[in-house]
Design a binder for these strands. Sequence first.
DNA 1: CTGAATCCTAATTGATACTG
DNA 2: CAGTATCAATTAGGATTCAG
Lengths: 124, 124
Amino acid sequence: MQFMAATANVYNRNCPSREVVGVIASHWGSLVLGALLDGTLRFGELRRTVNGISEKMLAQTLQALERNGLVHREVHPVIPPHVDYTLTPLGVQVSRQVRGLFDWITGSMPEILTAQQAYDTSRA
Amino acid sequence: MQFMAATANVYNRNCPSREVVGVIASHWGSLVLGALLDGTLRFGELRRTVNGISEKMLAQTLQALERNGLVHREVHPVIPPHVDYTLTPLGVQVSRQVRGLFDWITGSMPEILTAQQAYDTSRA
DNA sequence: CTGAATCCTAATTGATACTG
DNA sequence: CAGTATCAATTAGGATTCAG
């Protein structure tokens, strides 16, 4: 068999899908994917949108996303340089799920903050 | 205002929700959350299920998930020790979304592998 | 058995400077 | 503008060791 039962394979560290989890279910990967759902962005625009990401990590993250077929990179041969990043059809599918997760987090922040405070005070 | 428009706040590095993204949308965090959707697991069972995680990272990840109210830790005072980890109602909600993402990844692996190969050969 | 604590090495990350 | 190169700092990982 090429893949194990649904979902189970990501739990095998030798399965290629595990590497994909590392790309998508990562701090910067998820934020970049979510940002592009609103439309094409340039490198600098992404850098400003994803507040706090370094140039190095943005470049690295975009390369990983491009390699996995989630993001399309389009270079306009002009001076000064102009490079556009867009979600591929595949990327749009993940991005929607990532956005769903972000929306859930946003909506659940009150409960989460309460839990954090309870946890922190219980060991002070 | 306490929060910005939906989703947008995770893009502000000073918003508390950003920290939660780091916990959930992370390699180990997502895998542990997904694993617990099938039911309560003990430390050692989790260690075996999430193939490749070190004891250190598992302990660290479980603490972060517990602090954010997503996982409940139950210690049975017996010898030998017995500690159960279970998703809280809040945790079940995220876990379902994480599982959805994993299932999507699993189902999209053929396309993703094709993209990887195209990318790799195009610069060899 | 479940973890916390420690020590040490390897890998990531981030800030900065620099180039086409 | 869009990155790459470099180096310093942070973090992850593994291998014990130890306590409850």
